[in-house]
Nucleic acid binder design. Sequence first.
DNA 1: GCGACAG
DNA 2: ATCTTGTCGC
Length: 326
Amino acid sequence: MSGCSTLPLPSLPDLSSELMRLVAQVPPDGLTTYGDLARALGSRNAAIWVSQWIRERSAMEPELASRVVDKLTAGSRPRFTGFSGPHALQRLEDWLRAAAKFVDERPLGRAPKLVAGIDVAYPAPDRATAAAVLVDVRTKTVVHELVVERPVDFPYISGFLTFRELPAMMAACESLAKQAYAPDVVMIDGQGRLHPHRGGVATGFAAATGLPTMGVAKSLLCGQVEKGGDASTGAMIQRVLVGDEHLGFSLRATPKAQPVYISVGGGLSLDEVLGITLSLFTTTRLPLPTHRADRLSKSTRRERLDPAAILSRIRQFEERIDADLA
DNA sequence: GCGACAG
DNA sequence: ATCTTGTCGC
Ligand SMILES: [Mg+2]
């Protein structure tokens, strides 16, 4: 990366507090919808989270459900429109755009020797475990791996995954550095530039760390897979377009495997991302670094104690082998 | 108006 | 992401 400058992650708002603040603005006899509250928070993408939040709390506070309803229930009744205060998610969305502008896609120019896969799991609703697995590209072997655990409170909102997962991912990467391991490229479980604002979690990672970073996702957030693929190789490589922008590739590890969707995070070219992905495919759906990080991040989940759960655990492990390819 | 929505 | 049983196919 040029100069290795970075774009610091912004301070994260407490969305629950923000939502409580907004709900409190609705008069006792007023009416609002999940979508209206989401818009007041700064993004209508938050409507689903708002609905979950409201429904969870309306059990203890029935009065809540009478003032906050879905759009269908609201019908044509007049709704409260006087929400005031900062739009927390708008500020975060601005940061995503800034990160997208901050990173570059210039080629690394050299084949990476070490690639670090990073993924996050949730052993409890308020805990995140981030795993980093450092892989030697030439030998396709694991050089080092680690897990860090930390609290999470930022919810999953489509388009805002960065703010839920990036802090834990960065903590894992910093832990790697403290142990004197330095990846040439970081492979993130999620989108890079294949994002509505060209700034997915892998782009955020590239901007915040200055490290060359690529995104490998299991499903598409936006964009279309171009028809007519590459039948010559088994990978079935197809371009992914957002409008007329070529932002990524769809490809698969084996003819039977489901595809993955790759894109640049920052600090390297899309062609290099493609080459690295192909070179790190094995027998599983995900390329080695991300596959191992996914499994390692989930490995610390709390065990259930009843005997029946032990069988369940075994079954789950076996299913995992199939899921790797499906 | 209806469908989509990374993890 | 997480919960979760049985079942089909290579
Ligand atoms: Mg993940």
